[in-house]
């Protein structure tokens, strides 16, 4: 009887250790946040930049680390130093826009000048910065 209990306890211990190990070292390595499946806050590029310029800390409370879906006119397409595609959307301020780095492998495949892009907001430098971006339209 005692042996049985010890065995069960050992088995439980082993399973929990294995689960934690799997989550920390395997699952987290291969599973990143999935922008496509998360609900997004919809906003235009102009409004997003305006919100950040008006009050950066309250804009951070609203947008930082959240998935946002932005509609705007493309003013620049490029590549970062790692080879990821980037797209910059226009705001009403010519010195500031929305810079979005697209997720591995994604690129703009439409010729439309107005696009809708979804990404995680990282904050505000010269532009409002988004990463893990995907083109919605």
């Amino acid at each position: 009887m005692k042996i049985k209990i010890v065995l069960i306890l050992l088995a439980l211990c082993f399973t929990s250790v294995a689960t934690v190990w799997y989550y920390v070292f395997q699952y987290s390595k291969t599973h990143h946040r999935d922008v496509e499946s998360e609900n997004a806050i919809s906003v235009t590029a102009g409004q997003l930049v305006k919100d950040y310029q008006a009050n950066e800390s309250s804009a951070n409370t609203r947008y930082l680390n959240k998935v946002i879906q932005i509609k705007g006119d493309v003013i620049k397409e490029g590549k970062d130093q790692a080879g990821n595609y980037t797209v910059t959307l226009k705001s009403n301020d010519p010195f500031s826009g929305v810079l979005c780095t697209l997720k591995n492998g994604s690129k703009i495949n439409s010729t439309h000048s107005t696009i809708v892009v979804k990404g995680i907001c990282a904050g505000f430098l010269t532009d409002v910065v988004l990463n893990e971006g995907v083109i919605v339209k």
């Binding site: 920390v24 390595k29 599973h31 680390n65 990463n131």
Partner: peptide
Amino acid sequence: KSFKFENQ
């Protein structure tokens, strides 16, 4: 938040 790690 722009720093990306291999492990989430």
